[in-house]
Design a protein around this nucleic acid. Structure first.
Length: 226
DNA sequence: GTTCTAGAAC
DNA sequence: GTTCTAGAAC
């Protein structure tokens, strides 16, 4: 009986949402297939509507969210709320914002290290991000995560595809813009799996890499706990 | 960015 | 036969 009631409720809902959709012009449906790339924008426009499980912190200028698919034990995105599509849209005039962005990132790192001093962090940017809205990654360097699933994930954080904050700030100061060679950086994502901590090269596959990362994490903890 | 899955690699 | 990767998704 309960199942029947639930089914009816679902049918009612879907009918309603369908008619609402077709009634209003639904202007935000700019190519629905590309909507995933714009998801970060919602956090910047209305950070207050999200739970504390999604939004770590926000103020008038910045939002810090938990990465939805964390590639390490701790992985945050720090973003200006002002609409900036991409790292390529940065101007020298954004250097003030950048300084505050760095402070926000460092504030998260300090707080996370207080919680677990064993964690190391990098803060920086992908040379060619997939998601719109300029965002900075704050990510712990264990890379122990079930969401880390393929070579692209790995190489995007452990090759020069990942640009530390200071690097980007320096380029912006010196050249006034951020522009990378797309062919070169796309190729980096396809390179063999190399460990970011030791000299191990050409790790066979992702499962083997994960075992290797687990070993680093455990070795490290036994050293420090002695 | 993810999910899904065909077929390559083992 | 099973594990794993990598390309399509309208």
């Amino acid at each position: 009986m309960q199942i029947i009631i639930i089914t009816i409720k679902i049918m009612k809902n879907s009918t309603r949402s369908f008619s609402t959709k077709s009634f209003s012009s639904y202007s935000s449906s700019s190519s629905p297939s590309l909507r995933w790339s714009e998801e970060l924008i919602r956090y910047c426009e209305h950070p207050e509507v999200f739970s504390t499980k999604e939004v770590y912190h926000f103020d008038n200028e910045f939002v810090i969210i938990f990465d939805k698919y964390p590639k390490a034990k701790k992985h945050f995105l720090v973003m200006p709320r002002k609409r900036i599509d991409s790292i390529e849209n940065l101007k020298k005039g954004d250097l003030g914002m950048m300084q505050k962005l760095k402070e926000k990132g460092q504030w998260v790192i300090d707080s996370m290290k207080e919680e677990n001093p064993k964690l190391n962090f990098r803060m920086g940017f992908h040379a060619f991000p997939s998601m719109k809205q300029f965002h900075m990654h704050v990510i712990s360097q264990d890379f122990i995560s079930s969401a880390l699933k393929n070579k692209k994930h790995w190489n995007s954080f452990t090759t020069p595809f990942f640009k530390d904050y200071e690097k980007i700030e320096n380029i912006l100061k010196e050249k006034g813009e951020i522009k990378f060679d797309k062919i070169y950086y796309e190729a980096l994502l396809k390179k063999p799996l190399n460990c970011h901590l030791c000299n191990k090269k050409d790790i066979k596959n992702i499962p083997t890499l994960k075992k290797h990362l687990g070993d680093h994490w455990n070795d490290d903890s036994s050293e420090k706990s002695e």
